[in-house]
Write a protein that binds this DNA or RNA. Structure first.
Lengths: 231, 231
DNA sequence: TTAAAAGTGAGCAATATTGAACAGTTTGGC
DNA sequence: GCCAAACTGTTCAATATTGCTCACTTTTAA
């Protein structure tokens, strides 16, 4: 569409040169035509499973939880996202898509809400954004696949250990200990695909073994890796 | 890069107009610079987990299994792919990437092997291909996520039922019965994330209940859905 | 500040799952 | 056609997991 216009009026290319070089961060940082900045309150629902999907979101600040509700009413947390992540990208390249999960803010924050059409246009016209988006999708793919493999291979205990270690890296220093973001055993159970009592059981075991510490929050020690690595 | 060249030599755009309109199927159907057609024998390994990833593949014909090996030697089947699917796309947008899984042909077939650089160039220059690729990644994302959710929510029995139904749709008519591609209980176990004895146990139960039939291959009846839906 | 709601620790019986064995059956290659 | 290898059906004891319950503690909102 836009390309056709360029071909029809090649003179426009000259004026186009005056536009500063495209910066995806720039594009994703500001509101504009078809783009709105949304300020999020804690626990605010950004979209719900089953909603029509007409916008992509880009998280500027804050953390977001993605959950899926099963037909029998159980809830699973499939991802925790943060600044720099896209959200609700299932609708790009697919009109009439429905949200496959529910996105809830778990801290205050801001997201850029981008109209589907606007996103598609930008992807078509801006190679840098397109490249960023493809990279993001590939990385996300890899991450979900890891979660799946983890689920297929490991016991509840190992999956919990992995989830804790991943959470600990969320605020990554390279010390041997890290405090993880506040998270309930219930949510951990949803992420790991087990029950709260199981999580509780393992958490206490980890604590007895010195892998984690309770001091207000939870501090994870890197030696927790042993749980995962040990045979 | 290419865009810059166009700006520098706008005259080239005219001759560029003579090139026939880009057709992604065309691009993905033939060998050319940086693209080779590879003929696959049954059980041939296309790439192995841990290999350096420098090419993307596009399946023209045949079926391919993607497996992951755990550190403890267990194997999980994470996807069965067929004609029209990409393969090994993890390297696009990421030099020095390693293969995250092993791809093995399960039938004879042919794949188009595309050099990473060539793929990136094509994605940059050809919107239609870029769009197709993004669509593919989004669809694949959705599918892996479904598998993960399935794994998180459902019991081994339901996961097996789902896997069988998905396999049955592989050769999709819209009858209430379908023969599934030949697949061992061992592989089913890997896909579903359980043991062979469990798969065997459930298969026999499904048979007793009339959901599947053994007649040389395995015939799946759509009533198997009841297993998944029933509470 | 206080009552309600949410989260935690612990224990336990009922189930589900694993992992291993072993005999019988099918398949593929020579 | 025949052997070896792969696959299937079946069993079973040892574990792992679930789905509760109940008594506390912490957080949240009025």
């Amino acid at each position: 569409m836009t390309q056709a216009r360029h071909l029809a009026f090649p003179a426009k290319r000259i004026s186009a040169k005056k536009i500063p070089p495209f910066d995806p961060n720039e594009f994703l940082a500001h509101a504009g035509v078809g783009r709105t900045i949304v300020v999020l309150k804690k626990k605010q629902i950004i979209f719900s499973q089953g909603d029509a999907a007409e916008e992509v979101f880009y998280i500027q600040l804050g953390r977001v939880r993605l959950t899926v509700l099963s037909s029998s009413g159980k809830e699973a947390t499939i991802a925790l996202l943060g600044a720099g992540d896209f959200l609700g990208e299932e609708c790009v390249a697919n009109s009439y898509a429905l949200r496959m999960s529910t996105a809830t803010a778990i801290t205050e924050g801001t997201v850029l809400k981008i109209d589907r059409k606007e996103m598609m246009r930008a992807l078509r016209e801006q190679h840098a954004l397109s490249h960023l988006f493809v990279s993001y999708l590939l990385a996300r793919n890899a991450r979900i696949q890891e979660d799946l493999v983890d689920q297929l291979f490991n016991s509840g205990e190992k999956r919990l250990a992995r989830a804790l270690l991943l959470l600990a890296q969320f605020g990554k220093d390279n010390t041997s200990e890290a405090v993880i973001p506040k998270i309930s055993q219930e949510t951990l159970a949803e992420m790991v695909g087990t029950t709260r009592s199981r999580v509780n059981f393992f958490m206490n075991r980890f604590r007895k073994l010195g892998f984690i510490r309770y001091n207000g929050g939870v501090t994870v020690h890197s030696s927790l890796l042993n749980i995962i690595l040990h045979e």
